[in-house]
Design a protein around this nucleic acid. Structure first.
Length: 813
RNA sequence: GCCGAGGUGGCGGAACGGCAGACGCGGCGGACUUAAAAUCCGCUUCCGGCGACGGAGUGUGGGUUCAAAUCCCUCCCUCGGCACCA
């Protein structure tokens, strides 16, 4: 009698055996081609939930599939361990962030091991440990030395709850903190930035990477390239050592229609342009704008507000005197924080002009029926009017002509602007990699020398959010010696954005113990870049953009010889439970451990891959997983119970062979395309057929063995423990995971007998079985001769007969 | 508002110009059992019919085609991203 399927027991057994045999350890000295399959590492938030499994299990299937296909596969795992949640938990529960994080690491590592994935744990990377963040700091200094890291005083996004500055990418939705959803405010701070904008143009080129169009589009929009012109509008009374106000416009064709200028309230020239009479009003407006959160500034959006500075500019193209306003609808951080307003051809300027009773002259006109400019109508594009030498020209043409003309005259030039801003990396919090900089009264800003790295995070800081880094109050940390002159100096007390840690972690996996640099160049040369990167789409603009920027920066530093870190990207969807995203606060989280201890990891893995297409996500249903457990039991019994020949027939032999090859083909293609749900449906159909064959005993013992051997190999990436156990019981050589992936024979996979659908006027009226090699004449002949078709023909000659080989015959009467 | 993805049985989904509903869940019926669970077998889109069968049907309305869930246009809804970017 066959023994029952006991997943809990066999999973534990094989996990121990694989570890003992170092089955999944990989090195660079393999004759096989390399394949680097990377899954986004988890944040050390506490427990592994089913969402993590949803990310990890299918990517492990991919990695295992590639292994069986003969690749040397690196599929590493680690932890994104610095960041606010650890610190918040520390404040809330009085546990040190280090302890909280490392306890979580231990728990999550244990849980990750229960998935049965092929991770080579010798390569684990934990970003909060000194032997990792030493290199994060080292990379910071590299960027600093080439001017890619700089310090500047700027208005930054500030979360009043988290008490820290945030990068633009971390401001979510309508101006709220990515982490805690508190409305973000603007604050002037001296901060460290990475000059990602230097790579804006290059980052737009995604033609050489195999990424989802959606993600490429999101990055493109985030970078936000606009073309137009820079134009200098001379001030009526030059001030602050400047002769003109510079603006950027995407519509240089409308320059003759400018009736006023608007500066952002934060614009540097505002105090100089403001006349004494206007001073009180302007200052009140600025104060109000500063207090406003981004949310208030954007939701109060409909009504335009602003104040006249009292000053004027001259429009260089026509000498018109135009008043200068300040208004918060002009953003300080885009272009030059100043615009030329053309109310006739811009809805925002129009609204402002209406409110302040400013003239609205039309400079681009649609054409009437006689091809003449239609007076007084507003339009986006048309023919130029009231535009001096350009009158009568198509406006689209002037989009290029006017910038050239401006340049000739010395008033402006063709220009490109990006929405992307430099990446703010300073955080006024404790739990992050310290920025390796020292401030000396004599020498100024001094980088910490490489030999002094890492700048260790002191374990005994008071990590209470005060709006300043807790390190600032840690005297032993702050007070140091200047590396240059040896005099007294102070350390930078801000820490780095955790995205800095994750921007390069994939490099460290190639040689995690290497101590002469962030990674061993030899190992890097072998493994890099990443062949397949999988993870959630929530990282579309933050992490993925930062990582692409980093790779380019390191390339220019001579550390890497490629620009794109991730050749192929795949984003899985979200797994939901009870119709909602899983969240601890809602209490709708599925704990995988409960299932690991009952149905086993193989069932969880298989079920998660079955709920729907991976990129679309899916719904966890408590009784859905029962079906999958049932199926694995059926597979077990199918193979465990001895097979007996009863009535062997050549037809059944042929059919089984055909089905086997068809299944290999379908399963291989589906894994390649990440369609795990249909892969499993196909394997289920195959097992259903095998159950029929077993019942009938209709094939020879050897054919049966061949079929189940194939089934096991096809299922091995998905259910690694179950298949290993059955493979061993069945007498296969250890390990099934070292077996080559089955190949298929096109001829055997192809159908010999096909069902042709016979339609009359597009409606299915019959189905006929014909050999796959049937000719058109034979097929249509058979169709017309069918008893079920004849009545519809009514002895008439069909108007038309459409024949689609292998599919159907459609008779039009 | 703009950009993107999606809307198919009681449910998750399959098919992505050519048999709509593969596969699974649930439901119904049956076998086994003293009984239940488990397991196995059959049925299961809706309407009409005892039945063979006929009709309708893939968010809405239109179009292209011999043929549309699939392609094109209109509108509605859900989810994701961006949002005064000049």
């Amino acid at each position: 009698m066959a023994s029952p399927y006991n997943p809990v027991e066999i999973e534990k057994k094989w996990q121990e055996r694989w570890a003992a045999d170092r089955l999944y350890e990989v090195s660079e000295d393999s004759p096989k081609p390399k394949y680097y399959a990377l899954t986004m590492f988890p944040y050390t938030s506490g427990d592994l939930h089913i969402g993590h499994w949803y990310a990890m299990a299918p990517s492990d299937v991919q990695a295992r599939f590639k292994r069986m296909q003969g690749y040397n596969v690196l599929h590493p795992m680690g932890f994104d361990a610095f960041g606010l949640p650890a610190e918040n938990a520390a404040i809330k529960h009085g546990i040190h962030p280090y302890k909280w994080t490392m306890d979580n690491v231990e728990n999550m590592r244990r849980q990750l091991k229960t998935t049965g994935a092929v991770y080579d744990w010798r390569r684990e990377v934990i970003t909060c440990l000194p032997d990792y963040y030493k290199w994060t700091q080292w990379l910071f200094l590299k960027l600093y030395h080439v001017g890619l890291a700089y310090r500047a005083n700027a208005p930054v996004n500030w979360c009043p709850k988290c008490q820290t500055a945030l990068a633009n990418e971390q401001v979510a939705g309508e101006g709220v903190c990515d982490r805690c959803e508190t409305p973000v405010i603007k604050k002037d701070l001296e901060q460290w930035f990475f000059r990602i904008t230097r790579y804006a143009e290059e980052l737009l080129d995604m033609s050489h990477i195999d990424w989802p169009e959606k993600i490429k589009l999101m990055q493109t929009n985030w970078i936000g390239r606009s073309t137009g012109a820079d134009i200098d509008f001379p001030m009526e009374k030059p001030t602050a050592g400047q002769k003109a106000i510079r603006i950027f416009t995407t519509r240089p064709d409308t320059t003759f229609g400018v009736t006023f200028m608007v500066l952002a309230p934060e614009h540097a020239l505002v105090p100089y342009l403001t006349t004494p009479e206007q001073k009180a009003e302007v200052e009140a407006y600025i104060a109000k704008a500063r207090r406003a959160t981004e949310v208030e500034r954007t939701t109060a959006e409909r009504e335009k507000t602003g104040v006249f500075t009292g000053s004027y500019c001259i429009n260089p193209v026509n000498g018109a005197k135009v008043p200068v306003f300040i208004a918060d609808y002009v953003l300080p951080t885009y272009g030059y924080g100043a615009i030329m307003a053309v109310p006739a051809h811009d809805t925002r300027d129009f609204a402002f002009a209406k409110k302040f009773n400013l003239p609205i002259p039309v400079v681009i006109s649609p054409l009437d029926w006689d091809g003449q400019p239609l007076a007084g109508a507003y339009t986006e594009e048309g023919v130029m009017v009231n535009s001096g030498p350009f009158n009568g020209m198509p406006s689209l043409e002037c989009l290029k002509k006017i910038p050239a003309w401006l340049e000739e005259k010395g008033w402006g030039k063709y220009a490109v602007t990006y929405r992307l801003r430099d990446w703010l990396v300073s955080r006024q919090r404790y739990w992050g990699a310290p920025i390796p900089i020292v401030y000396c009264e004599k020498c100024g800003t001094v980088p910490v020398p490489e030999k002094d790295l890492p700048v260790l995070l002191p374990p005994d800081a008071e990590f209470k959010p005060t709006g300043e880094s807790p390190l600032k109050y840690h005297n032993a940390f702050v007070n140091t010696r200047c590396p240059q002159c040896g005099g007294a100096a102070r350390r930078e007390t801000d820490t780095m954005d955790t995205h800095m840690c994750s921007a390069w972690y994939y490099l460290r996996y190639t040689s995690p113990k290497y101590d002469k640099g962030p990674f061993d160049p030899k190992a890097g040369k072998y493994w890099l870049p990443v062949d397949l990167y999988t993870g959630g789409a929530e990282h579309a603009v933050m992490h993925l953009l930062y990582a692409r920027f980093f790779a380019r920066a390191l390339r220019d530093l001579g550390l890497l010889d490629f620009s794109e870190p991730f050749k192929k990207l795949f984003n899985q969807g979200t797994i939901i439970y009870q119709k909602a995203k899983m969240s601890k606060s809602k209490g709708n989280v599925v704990n995988p451990d409960d299932y690991v201890n009952t149905m086993g990891a193989d069932t969880i893995r298989t079920y998660l891959m079955f709920v729907g297409p991976w990129e679309q996500g899916g719904e966890w249903m408590d009784n859905g997983i029962i079906g999958m457990n049932r199926w694995l039991h059926r597979v077990w019994n199918l193979i465990e119970e001895p097979y007996a020949e009863k009535a062997v027939s050549p037809e059944a032999e042929k059919e089984l062979l055909h089905r086997t090859h068809q299944t290999i083909k379908k399963v291989s293609g589906d894994i390649e395309r990440f369609r795990f749900n249909t892969m499993l449906a196909c394997l289920m159909e195959f097992t259903n057929h095998l159950a029929d064959v077993r019942e009938a005993g209709s094939v020879a013992q050897a054919s049966w063995k061949n079929a189940i051997s194939t089934l096991l190999k096809l299922l091995a990436p998905t259910a690694p423990h179950l298949t290993e156990e059955l493979w061993q019981r069945f007498g296969g050589p250890y390990s099934i995971h070292n077996q080559p992936w089955p190949s298929w024979d096109e001829g055997l996979a192809r159908e010999e007998e096909i069902t042709l659908v016979v339609q009359v006027n597009g409606k299915v009226r019959d189905r006929i079985s014909v050999p796959a090699t049937v000719t058109e004449d034979a097929a249509t002949g058979l169709a017309m001769a069918s008893d079920r078709i004849k009545p519809y023909l009514n002895n008439r000659k069909p108007k038309k007969v459409i024949y689609v080989p292998g599919k159907l015959v459609n008779i039009v009467v």
